[in-house]
Structures are given as structure tokens and as C-alpha cells.
Amino acid sequence: MPEITLRQLQYYVRVIEHGSVTAAAAACHISQAAVSMAISQLERSLETDLLIRSRSKRVAPTPAGREFAAHARAVLARVAEAEEAMTDHRDLMRGPLNIGFAQSISPRLMPVLAEHFTTRYPEVELGFREGAPSEIQDAVRDGHLDFALVYELQAAPDLTPVRLIDIHLHVMLPATHPLAGEPGIHLAQVIGEPAVLLDVPPTIERLTSIVSDLGLRMDVRWRSSNMETIRCMVARGLGYSLINSVPATGATFDGRTVVYLPVLDAVQGNALVGVLPSEHRPSRRVEEALEALRSA
């Protein structure tokens, strides 16, 4: 049985996070020699190299080191949870909580969690990362994020999805469009017009598949990775768009207006989900965040 200490795990995770032994030592307020010794002892115990050292003194994890880092973070998180469980008061919840958001989801839910934890659990160290679904799910696998928020159809099969909020596909139209006043819309009613779609993989592929299943084909004329840019283009009558997360207002950045009509076709269902590492039990902080999101 390898002799591994929590201190070694803490130093190793710090080295991975900071990219060098020197920076990790400074963050831990100890000597560089102490960190180097702990990492060397850890590698001997595991009988494998965890780090790739360079002449510039920068380090990067080996494939084995990358996998081990995820387990090390999970162990440290469980220890923190055990310490926290010894208190009689839930209001004393504290510790780090790092969450990833798909870019189209973050405006809707990131402020909700920031307000929730700032108001109720100010000692929780809340961190956010926005990015493409594939990017933030990689960060969950690597242990950099506790969980990530994506659409159900984007969820990776090797992560555990937790269904949070049901959503419905909508068509975004300019407020001046002849169909803008309708209570709902069939995609065939706008399919001949240019489409303006979110260019964040795999969004376009998913939407194209949904439309193809109805025997239709979109004319994807414009693409943008910025939803506000898309809203402004639609408001100017340059096309329509398809959207899952509907804002509370139709006002655009440049003062124009769009409307959102629910799609009446029978399309594949979707939902906002939290994706968690499959092999780890969620912490109390994660459970609290998921519950807050269900009520959002």
C-alpha cells in the first residue's frame, strides 16, 4: 500500500494549478524544497512520474499525473466535507465550489448562484468558468470544476447528468416580423428565411439535426459565438434564430426588439442539466447549488 499523505496531495494539486513548484511553494507559504520533496515522495509511492519538468522550471502533468490530479482533488474535497460535517450548523457551510457554464446558459443561471451563496453562505468560495460545452466538461473530468451546466443534448456520456430545468425550443424573430404576434410557430413557417445561429459546438449540429428530423433544411446565413450579436442581427430583420434559454426581455443591445415564439412542432426534448464526475459523490456545496438551480 503506497504511503500517501494529505499534505502531498495538497502540494501536488497546487503545483498543477500554478504550473510550477516555485509558484506552488509561494501559494502554500512554504519552501520550494519542501514542495519538491513532497512531490518526489508521492511519485516514489505511486511508482510513476506525475510531472513533466522543463528547463524553464514550468511543469505539466503526465497522462498519469493528470488522472491522479482529479482523484487528488476529490480526496481533498471529501476531507473538507468531513471537517465541515462536524459542525452543528449548516449556515457554516464553507470551502471552494467551482462551476462551469456553457456560454449561452451563464447569463440565466450564474447570477442566481452568485446571489444565493453570497446571501446565504458567504464563506463558500464560489468560482465560475464560462466556455464551450466540451471545454467545461473536460474541466469536470480533470477535477478543475465540481460540475458544469450544459444542455442535456450536449452532455458527455461519461459524466453523470442531473436534470434541473425543462426547456422548450423557441424561434427568435424581429418584433416587426409578420408572425411576431403569433402564440407559437411551426419551423416550416420560417425555414425559407436566413438563419442566424450560435456558433458554439455542438449547437449548430444539434439544431440542424432537429430541423432535419422534420424533413426541413435551414439556410444558415450567419453565425456568431455571441448571443447578443445574434439578437441584434435578428432585430434588424437579417434572419431568425433558434434559442433554448429565453431572456426575460426582448430588448437588444442597440435598442431594437425581438420576440420569442415557442416551436409547435414535435421536436426532441431538452433540459438544462448539471454534469458531475461519475465516480464521485457530490459535496454538500454541490448539492446546495443544484437545489438552488432547480428553484431558479
Score class of each variant (00 low, 15 high):
residue 159 L to F: 08
residue 146 D to G: 01
residue 150 V to Y: 01
residue 129 R to G: 09
residue 168 H to F: 04
residue 128 F to L: 11
residue 148 A to M: 01
residue 160 T to K: 12
residue 147 F to P: 00
residue 124 V to R: 01
residue 154 Q to E: 15
residue 173 L to A: 06
residue 126 L to K: 03
residue 130 E to M: 08
residue 139 A to V: 03
residue 123 E to C: 06
residue 155 A to L: 03
residue 161 P to L: 11
residue 127 G to F: 05
residue 125 E to D: 15
residue 174 P to Q: 04
residue 138 D to A: 14
residue 170 H to E: 05
residue 125 E to V: 14
residue 171 V to N: 02
residue 148 A to N: 10
residue 159 L to Q: 13
residue 141 R to I: 01
residue 161 P to I: 10
residue 137 Q to S: 06
residue 134 S to Q: 11
residue 138 D to Q: 13
residue 170 H to I: 09
residue 132 A to C: 00
residue 127 G to Y: 11
residue 171 V to L: 12
residue 149 L to G: 02
residue 155 A to Y: 09
residue 143 G to R: 02
residue 165 I to H: 11
residue 137 Q to D: 02
residue 158 D to W: 09
residue 171 V to K: 07
residue 140 V to T: 00
residue 122 P to Y: 09
residue 143 G to W: 03
residue 152 E to A: 15
residue 166 D to N: 06
residue 136 I to G: 01
residue 132 A to W: 05
residue 124 V to G: 02
residue 138 D to F: 10
residue 137 Q to E: 05
residue 159 L to W: 11
residue 124 V to A: 10
residue 168 H to I: 02
residue 160 T to Y: 03
residue 158 D to V: 07
residue 147 F to A: 00
residue 138 D to K: 13
residue 173 L to K: 08
residue 132 A to Y: 02
residue 140 V to F: 00
residue 155 A to F: 01
residue 136 I to H: 05
residue 164 L to A: 12
residue 152 E to K: 04
residue 141 R to W: 05
residue 131 G to K: 04
residue 161 P to G: 14
residue 150 V to W: 03
residue 151 Y to M: 13
residue 160 T to G: 00
residue 144 H to N: 08
residue 177 H to D: 15
residue 143 G to A: 08
residue 136 I to F: 03
residue 163 R to S: 01
residue 141 R to C: 09
residue 164 L to M: 15
residue 157 P to H: 12
residue 162 V to M: 12
residue 158 D to C: 07
residue 149 L to I: 14
residue 128 F to A: 14
residue 170 H to D: 10
residue 170 H to W: 02
residue 152 E to S: 10
residue 145 L to E: 14
residue 143 G to N: 09
residue 122 P to N: 05
residue 146 D to Q: 03
residue 122 P to T: 13
